[in-house]
Nucleic acid binder design. Structure first.
Lengths: 214, 214
DNA sequence: CGGTTAATTGAACGCATTCAACACGAGTGG
DNA sequence: CCACTCGTGTTGAATGCGTTCAATTAACCG
């Protein structure tokens, strides 16, 4: 299946750098792209598939950092070590560039700027995540999450590459609470789940209202 | 009071840029440096005082983004508008540079790189914040917060420039819960509060244990 | 001093969690 | 095709943590 239409191949310097420097790698479902505490010396760009980043605390609790889709860039962390690991949620293809390679790339200034922009985008996502975790109720969190997935794709039916546990660990909830929220959203005829991994938005405005104030 | 010793004035390109391009501004306690939804066209660097960033949701809930101390750089957000506002917690002096000015500064590449590094540092702080809000209990959150303040300063007695409400809004809790956590930490003889705005760590290891697993 | 705001403490409530049972779906082998 | 199993998701009941509401105390500032 071609995913070219999913990825805007504009003449962005960073994308150029990926195109010209980036090795192509494939990963299978559930395979780790890199692990927490690995050396952080590469950037990634997704061509197809979905990737999850996550961090395990010493006592076994897990926090999912984010979910990345085709066109997204991730792995931008600064430190010598990865603070979050990255795992393939589905089979996927990614472009990988070494940090050092980008550094010596002709037109470096423009590439640096582009990396900065990608990092700032990541920062915004993290800010949204903080707002979500800090000040939103359970139903609100689930509504926001599913809405953001729905608005990412133009399709009517949206499929969920992640399971309930992944959602829960992203939203700072338990699977049971996520499940109940989904049941509730179905009961209100706001969403429809033909299967556990697919859903459709029936009442957008109601969903938006919920997302704004639970 | 001189704060020169608090700010490492190394020959870092970004600091240079601030020194050479940065206008000096002063703000009084509780004054806004900029507001949420203002145009985001400036970077800031603190010389003295403490700054808080915060965001208000439409229904009045508030999330504190972070607290910034002398030497810290903030206001790096990408979008055209500020997602978080910035307010002075104490009287403070800051260096301000226009984004556009930095762009045309000689040695621009190095400055861009330095901004990138500052942004990545900010990203790390946000990641920590996500971990805190997603997967930690109330006592744990308060312990982590106070520990991070304590490790920032070398002093034995640490003072709290922010009130309980600010802590609560940073930690995703209520003032009452924060207060109870503090009382508990005093009861365990882990911390000592000579006044509500000053504290001292009595048992570091116990505090670290609490911070790791509540 | 009073007057005002901030912080603490107490008691009742509620939301999310926990623990436990059940349902569903996919894959396997009889 | 059905029985079995394993992993995942849903549902129910009870518990508990943090919130809410309310009252008291402490700190700050004229």
């Amino acid at each position: 299946m071609s995913v070219a239409h999913l990825v805007e191949s504009a003449g962005c310097p960073l994308v150029d750098a990926f195109e010209r420097l980036g090795g192509l790698s494939s990963f299978r479902r559930n395979e780790a792209l890199y692990r927490q505490d690995d050396p952080a010396d590469r950037f990634y760009r997704i061509l197809s598939g979905v990737v999850r980043t996550s961090r395990l605390t010493s006592d076994g609790r897990r926090q999912v950092g984010d979910f990345y889709y085709p066109g997204d860039i991730f792995g931008l962390e600064t430190g010598p070590e990865r603070r979050f690991g990255a795992e393939a949620l589905t089979d996927c293809e990614v472009q990988v560039v070494r940090r050092a390679a980008v550094r010596t790339f002709a037109g470096q200034a423009a590439v640096d700027r582009a990396i900065l922009e990608a990092t700032q985008l990541e920062m915004e996502r993290l800010q949204d995540h903080v707002m979500l975790l800090g000040r939103k109720g359970a139903l609100e969190r689930v509504a926001i999450f599913l809405m953001s997935l729905a608005s990412r794709e133009a399709d009517l039916e949206i499929d969920l590459p992640m399971g309930r546990q992944d959602m829960a660990d992203y939203l700072g909830l338990t699977i049971e609470t996520v499940s109940r929220a989904i049941t509730h959203l179905q009961g209100e005829a706001i969403l429809n789940f033909p299967s556990t991994r697919r859903f459709e938005v029936r009442r957008w405005t109601a969903l938006e209202t919920l997302a704004a104030r639970a």
